[in-house]
Amino acid sequence: MAEIIRGKGVISGIAMGKIMLAGQNLDGYLVNYKPEDKATEKQKAKDALTAVAEILRESIEKLKSKDMKEQAAIMEAHRMMVQDPMMADNIMAKIEELGNAPQGVLKAAEEQAVMFEQME
Score class of each variant (00 low, 15 high):
residue 1 M to T: 06
residue 7 G to E: 10
residue 7 G to R: 12
residue 8 K to F: 10
residue 10 V to N: 10
residue 11 I to M: 14
residue 15 A to D: 10
residue 16 M to F: 11
residue 16 M to P: 09
residue 17 G to K: 03
residue 17 G to Q: 02
residue 17 G to Y: 01
residue 18 K to M: 11
residue 18 K to S: 09
residue 19 I to W: 11
residue 21 L to N: 11
residue 21 L to W: 09
residue 22 A to E: 08
residue 23 G to T: 05
residue 23 G to N: 03
residue 24 Q to Y: 03
residue 24 Q to L: 00
residue 27 D to I: 13
residue 27 D to R: 08
residue 31 V to L: 13
residue 31 V to N: 07
residue 32 N to H: 10
residue 33 Y to C: 03
residue 33 Y to A: 03
residue 33 Y to I: 04
residue 35 P to E: 10
residue 36 E to G: 09
residue 39 A to D: 06
residue 40 T to K: 09
residue 44 K to S: 00
residue 46 K to D: 05
residue 46 K to M: 09
residue 47 D to I: 08
residue 49 L to T: 02
residue 49 L to H: 00
residue 49 L to D: 00
residue 49 L to W: 03
residue 49 L to F: 02
residue 53 A to Q: 00
residue 55 I to Q: 01
residue 57 R to S: 04
residue 57 R to E: 03
residue 58 E to Q: 02
residue 59 S to H: 01
residue 61 E to K: 02
residue 61 E to T: 03
residue 62 K to F: 00
residue 62 K to S: 07
residue 62 K to I: 07
residue 63 L to T: 11
residue 64 K to N: 02
residue 65 S to D: 08
residue 66 K to F: 07
residue 68 M to E: 14
residue 71 Q to F: 13
residue 72 A to G: 01
residue 73 A to K: 08
residue 74 I to L: 11
residue 75 M to A: 12
residue 78 H to N: 10
residue 80 M to A: 15
residue 81 M to H: 13
residue 81 M to E: 10
residue 82 V to P: 01
residue 85 P to D: 07
residue 85 P to F: 09
residue 86 M to W: 07
residue 89 D to T: 04
residue 90 N to Y: 11
residue 92 M to A: 15
residue 96 E to N: 13
residue 97 E to C: 07
residue 103 Q to Y: 12
residue 103 Q to K: 15
residue 105 V to N: 04
residue 105 V to I: 08
residue 105 V to K: 00
residue 106 L to E: 14
residue 107 K to T: 05
residue 107 K to C: 11
residue 107 K to W: 15
residue 108 A to L: 11
residue 109 A to I: 07
residue 109 A to R: 02
residue 112 Q to H: 12
residue 112 Q to A: 13
residue 112 Q to D: 14
residue 113 A to Q: 04
residue 114 V to P: 10
residue 115 M to E: 15
residue 116 F to V: 14
residue 116 F to D: 14
residue 117 E to V: 04
residue 118 Q to V: 13
residue 120 E to S: 14
residue 120 E to V: 14
